[in-house]
Design a protein around this nucleic acid. Structure first.
Lengths: 160, 160
DNA sequence: GCTTGACCTTGCCATTATGGGAAGCCCCAC
DNA sequence: GTGGGGCTTCCCATAATGGCAAGGTCAAGC
């Protein structure tokens, strides 16, 4: 099958399938005489694997490792688990960061009248507030109301 | 003062101060005859405001709005509050996404022996698992399109 | 005066994962 | 034989930041 079918069958975009080939996450697909990429059902399985891994937020680098382990019948499950727990640790760190931001901003917003007058604790905080540590608490418990919005405006990088 | 002093005084890098100028988050700084940027204490205050806003994860676009409101003595606090609550909503959405990922992966990891044998529920899930409800957790079903961020491996995009 | 070193300038590249679009070839149905 | 849809490659853009490079500037010390 061509890339369109493979993409549809895996849930990825054709664009991303090409991209994954270019960064060598997947091997170079075979070509027809006209240069069209050719995929097998097995290839689609690999692409689905990748899509699911991306849904769990795994980075391309980790997915590379996982695909390698997946295809190795002798793999120690310990290695797979390690990749997973590494990612869980990063997710936890990120979650803590975002929760701290949200809680701080939510407090400020709560204290803001939100009326036609100019006085505003949010601006006062930004103007000269010292960002302080937020008292501990389980992250999960704070997560309440949903919302299917879009991007969060990314935070300062210091992480890696 | 020069950019180095302004950067140090605001907690930003000189690089970012130049960047913020280039994207017009701040006005073009005055120059010496040699072309060096010149900053006043007031400029540094603005830079500090920006740094704190970034610490709260606000995007440059929202910070632009906030800086504008901050400098407008007639601003309605309701507008400031709106910017803040918009961001809180996005943070909440992002947090939910990450928590869903973390919980799912954590469950899988917990079920993985992590020994020298190849059998592994994590790979089995990726191989053909539908992302489903996590026991004990409220976050479930389709983990839709996340986004990128700091340390975490980022997820699919759709948003912007 | 001249050297040295710290600081400044602009500009380009990299990151992460993904989308968009252009220019141009290919294939099949009608 | 033609039109439209699928395919190809390549470049650009995103968000925010770091890094490096080549070169100008300034102040201090000799």
């Amino acid at each position: 099958m061509n890339i369109g079918q493979a993409a549809a069958g895996s849930g990825l975009s054709a664009k991303m399938v090409r991209h994954y080939e270019s960064i060598r996450l997947i091997p170079r697909a075979g070509r027809t005489e006209a240069g069209y990429r050719v995929y097998s059902a097995k290839d689609v399985n690999t692409l689905r694997f990748i899509r699911r891994a991306r849904e769990l937020g795994l980075s391309i680098e980790r997915i590379k490792r996982l695909v390698g382990l997946w295809q190795d019948r002798e793999r120690p499950s310990a290695e797979v688990k390690r990749v997973a727990t590494e990612h869980v640790a990063e997710l936890d760190a990120k979650i803590l960061e975002l929760v701290a931001m949200r809680d701080a901003l939510q407090e400020l917003a709560k204290a803001c009248h939100g009326d036609p007058r100019p006085d505003c604790p949010i601006l006062r905080d930004l103007e000269s507030g010292a960002r302080a540590a937020i008292p501990g608490g389980s992250v999960t418990e704070h997560v309440s109301h949903p919302r299917r919005s879009t991007a969060v405006g990314a935070a300062p990088r210091h992480t890696a």
